[in-house]
Design a protein around this nucleic acid. Sequence first.
DNA 1: ACCGCAACTTGACATTTGTCAAGAGAAGGG
DNA 2: CCCTTCTCTTGACAAATGTCAAGTTGCGGT
Lengths: 232, 232
Amino acid sequence: MPASDHSDIRALDLFADMDDAHFDALMRASYVQNFPPQIELISEGDPSDFLHVILTGSVELFATWNRRETSLATVRPISTFILAASIKDAPYLMSARTLEKSRIVLLPSQDVRSIFNQDARFAQAIVTELAQCYRTVVKSTKDLKLRTSLERLANYLLRQQARAGGAQVFDLAAEKRRLASFLGMTPENLSRAIKGLKPYGVTVVGSRVTISDQADIKRFAKPSPLIDDYST
Amino acid sequence: MPASDHSDIRALDLFADMDDAHFDALMRASYVQNFPPQIELISEGDPSDFLHVILTGSVELFATWNRRETSLATVRPISTFILAASIKDAPYLMSARTLEKSRIVLLPSQDVRSIFNQDARFAQAIVTELAQCYRTVVKSTKDLKLRTSLERLANYLLRQQARAGGAQVFDLAAEKRRLASFLGMTPENLSRAIKGLKPYGVTVVGSRVTISDQADIKRFAKPSPLIDDYST
DNA sequence: ACCGCAACTTGACATTTGTCAAGAGAAGGG
DNA sequence: CCCTTCTCTTGACAAATGTCAAGTTGCGGT
């Protein structure tokens, strides 16, 4: 693995504070691979052999049941995924596939666990990361159970706008098909929901979103930090 | 606090392996209180001053938005709740209210965090607990997004049956009103869903559930360990 | 045992969401 | 550049879910 990859990984909160020797040991045990798009990296139910770190590209986390599939998250560089399964040595609950050409580091779960048992600072970082993941999923559950699909879309667009620096015009990060699945609706319904936000000054052409009056859509969306602020 | 309470708490996975001195310090800093039913112990958005441990009774975790409310979990003895908020020193994402007369220990979050920073074994236990919580919420999200309300009810009943030792007849742990909210539907719809399971040999009279042919309802419910097995 | 209250059930109806089918539009490959 | 292919959109319809209103049941307290 190139040294530049090492420093990118080292900069992650999860690895920033750990002992040098432990970090080096982890890196030595790891693999880097470049994957083409649409490769299934992980299948739910499989034993969790590796903690994954995405360096470039993007990865979708999804789950299936009874021939249905739902998108649960999109992972972007630089971050890790499926930490909980690795630490617990439990089967993956989600599947993962590359959305585009992606460069991914595989850290053997066994090494992660063994160093976690020796390195208190690493253990602390893991706690912070897991707590963050947990709170994110709780927010997502609240979003799903407390809001209609129209409200979920409106709040999603406001979150995306914030990520885009608050610009009045910005691009959707995902294709609509996956966005619909992420928001818990069908693509057809997403199309209709987008139309349904027109009265509030929201228009979407292709992947270009325009929010003409943020105050207007906010009155409808009623965003709450306890659901929509992913940073706390 | 009576010594018997100490040993009950000590027996929890979260506290079992930690240093004696640290555990004693935590206990000295803690408060025990008996609450009547229907007391709101925690309001979402409040700073997380205490890690809570429920010794007797039961507590509902719920969330609200825009005058809507949804039930997220029921906590039963002996376990802790809102660990993630305490550790992160972040606002509560859920509210909590007693369902019945309950005896609850309050551990100041600041002490929990300070001992977490000193006690590696405690930190490890916290990781295990958080990973468990995280995976439980992910399962719940999959349940919500991949299943219809009828399927959620069917699988819920099968899980409850398993908890009741597999008996053909068992009692619902919650009143139907809260069960409906937990399952993400209205009370009216729960009534209809219960009727909808009759063709599969499931009958509910009052809070008494009878599953006459487990194989039959399982064919419909299609339970999956990756959604319904809360132990992994 | 009776009463009163709250939970639950039921029916009728409205709204939301999903499904199917067809067509329009956009992107990539020869 | 055109063709294929896929995504996206739209309309018509079906199914699921929510709302409202009116009972009915069941439980706790007097």
